[in-house]
Design a binder for these strands. Structure first.
Length: 99
DNA sequence: AGCCTTTGACCAGCG
DNA sequence: TCGCTGGTCAAAGGC
């Protein structure tokens, strides 16, 4: 599970037949934080089509972990492209979406 | 001991 | 009103 700069706690996972995709439900580690995150992907292609939906906003200062991949050059082992793939995925924000 | 992850069941809203 | 889907919470296991 790649990080996006915040800490999340998974509280559920369901298969949405409507779109034929898997959806994971994440919540901010802080109970007082109204930030939520939903991640959906194809069960046959987890890296082919990843969708992230952010809901609400954090009520606490952003942690210093806000350093997503993009200009590091720390690739050495060979196989850590999961994080690289993550930055290539489409990120949808619940409050920034035209929905 | 504490925290995180995973699965199932239950509840609410909509058609 | 019933059925279905989506979403959330709780409990157990592992690290």
């Amino acid at each position: 599970m790649p990080e996006d700069g915040y800490e999340w706690k998974k509280y559920g996972q369901k298969f949405i037949k409507n779109i034929q995709k898997m959806r994971s439900y994440f919540r901010c580690r802080h109970r007082l934080c109204g930030a939520k995150k939903k991640v959906e992907w194809h069960p046959r292609d987890p890296g082919g089509d990843l969708r992230i939906v952010y809901d609400g906003a954090h009520q606490h200062g952003p942690p210093p972990l806000a350093a997503p991949p993009g200009g590091h050059g720390q690739m050495q082992g060979g196989g850590a492209s999961d994080s690289n793939r993550y930055e290539l995925c489409t990120q949808y924000f619940g409050g920034a979406r035209s929905r």
